[in-house]
Design a protein around this nucleic acid. Structure first.
Length: 280
DNA sequence: TGATGTGTTGAG
DNA sequence: TCAACACATCAG
């Protein structure tokens, strides 16, 4: 069984170690409306396990003399105040959320925390609101509550073995990958025509923080190659992948037909949840 | 008076 | 762009 529940940029995944940051957080007299993430919305779980070199620093987070934490973000040479928070981590989360709206998926390079199975849905959530509305929610502390509600109303989709085929490969049409996984495809829009692009390795983490390696390849499709489904399974070789891709694009598509039809259904309902799906 | 937001400045 | 510091303003 394979539960894909979070995505973490490769460079972050490699460089960061598991740790906790809660002990660094000071108490706060004036509590915000913001609820700490719970087990049902384990944002903190994903965050807790990530530490940074010099892990007392967060981008966009400032500390007042009284020990309270503020968040700010700079856009177009202007500072936007994101409010005060009861902890540096919450301030950092506020910064990340604002960064998504203000910088789109360039936020990949402007984040405190890697994408988790929950935060990866923030761009879709934020599309419902104007920039001003998102910033206001961050400021007044209602953002996490609204986002949590948004996630609750989403349906999760379960993948089956037929979705991945014999090679354990999940193939996603480029149009869906570009639409729903823009942080993986953004760079391609800036490529020059004819430029050869190497495959990009992407690491997903399941709820047990187990690592799963995928590979984005730009053939006729943007696709994900599942290199292993369990520690005992042998990895799909590049030779097998290339043979299948080049010999018959239709064959590649076949295992993904069910998945793609589900994609369409989800799209019609106004959203798509890839992460949190199960392959068994 | 403490909490919060803004102005300003210097570093990268 | 970012953080740090100083200062202004707000609210209980």
């Amino acid at each position: 069984m394979f539960l894909v529940s979070s995505v973490i940029p490769m460079d972050v995944a490699k460089s960061e170690t598991l740790n906790t940051i809660d002990s660094l957080l000071p108490p706060k007299k004036r509590m915000r409306l913001t609820e700490p993430p719970t087990d049902n919305a384990p944002v903190s779980a994903a965050i807790k396990k990530v530490s940074f070199p010099n892990n007392t620093k967060y981008k966009g987070v400032v500390q007042h003399q009284n020990g309270h934490w503020g968040a700010q973000i700079y856009v177009d040479h202007k500072r936007i105040w994101l409010g005060t928070f009861r902890s540096a981590a919450e301030a950092a989360m506020g910064y990340d959320s604002a960064s998504i709206k203000l910088r789109s998926f360039d936020a990949n390079s402007h984040r405190n925390f890697p994408w988790s199975d929950l935060t990866v849905h923030e761009p879709v959530f934020q599309k419902r609101y104007t920039t001003e509305a998102v910033l206001n929610m961050i400021k007044d502390g209602s953002y996490q509550r609204e986002f949590k509600e948004f996630l609750k109303n989403r349906s999760q989709k379960e993948l089956t073995a037929s979705d991945v085929g014999k090679l354990n490969r999940l193939v996603i049409p480029k149009k869906y990958a570009v639409k729903y996984l823009p942080f993986l495809s953004d760079d391609q829009t800036e490529r020059e025509e004819g430029e050869i692009v190497e495959d990009v390795e992407v690491v997903f983490y399941d709820r047990e923080m187990k690592q799963w390696k995928f590979r984005w390849s730009e053939q006729e499709l943007l696709m994900v190659d599942v290199h292993r489904f369990s520690d005992n399974d042998s990895a799909v070789t590049d030779e097998e992948v290339n043979k299948t891709v080049h010999n018959s694009c239709d064959d590649v598509m076949k295992p993904a037909e069910n998945f793609n039809s589900k994609l369409g259904e989800e799209e019609n309902r106004g959203g798509f949840m890839l992460f949190g799906v199960r392959i068994q």
